[in-house]
């Protein structure tokens, strides 16, 4: 065991943030415990549930499987940092009005995945949404309303 708590400079939500991390600290741990960004959740810490999903260089990744130290030099965006994005704003509104949110624990990660889908594929069908969100487990909704919200957001954005 090497004591190598080190200072890292991370680019998070458009700002440079200095944190101090151990070598085994994941991005999720640093975001939640040091930066107070608790929008990304820890549902399993094993890369399966998707509640920790954040973006690195524009791609949704598992916060719990990304080592913080390896994220230096990369652009990190969490749910808290998507506020100005019009695609996210529409998705969020549709999630709210279409009842795609129950306990909400999966919601931030789900939204991060959904945003990437709509960037890549502005008019997905239900099957494409199911495929894009299959890495984000929701135990409450049964997915139907989440898929409907994403489809409605796509439609709204197309107008």
């Amino acid at each position: 065991m090497i004591d190598d708590r080190q200072d890292l400079l991370l680019q998070v939500n458009g700002a440079r943030r200095r944190v101090s991390a151990e070598g085994s600290d994941t991005l999720l741990t640093v975001l939640r415990d040091q930066l107070g960004l608790t929008g990304a959740k820890r549902g399993c810490n094993q890369g399966v549930c998707g509640s920790c999903t954040v973006e690195v260089d524009g791609w949704p990744v598992r916060g719990c499987l990304s080592l913080a130290a390896a994220c230096e030099g990369h652009e990190i965006v969490t749910i808290e940092g998507t506020g100005r994005d019009p695609v996210m704003a529409v998705l969020q509104r549709q999630f709210v009005v279409r009842g795609a949110v129950q306990c909400g624990f999966c919601t931030p990660g789900m939204l991060i995945s959904a945003r990437r889908l709509l960037q890549d594929q502005p008019r997905p069908d239900a099957e494409a949404v199911q495929a894009a969100l299959s890495g984000n487990i929701c135990r409450c909704t049964g997915y139907r309303k989440i898929i409907d919200a994403v489809l409605a957001a796509a439609e709204e954005l197309a107008q």
């Binding site: 608790t38 990304a40 959740k41 969490t78 749910i79 808290e80 969020q92 009842g99 919601t107």
Partner: peptide, 16 residues
Amino acid sequence: KFENQEKVLGEARYIA
């Protein structure tokens, strides 16, 4: 639901 808004913003606070 009233708390949907804070949940989609990532602002809802759970035990952890």
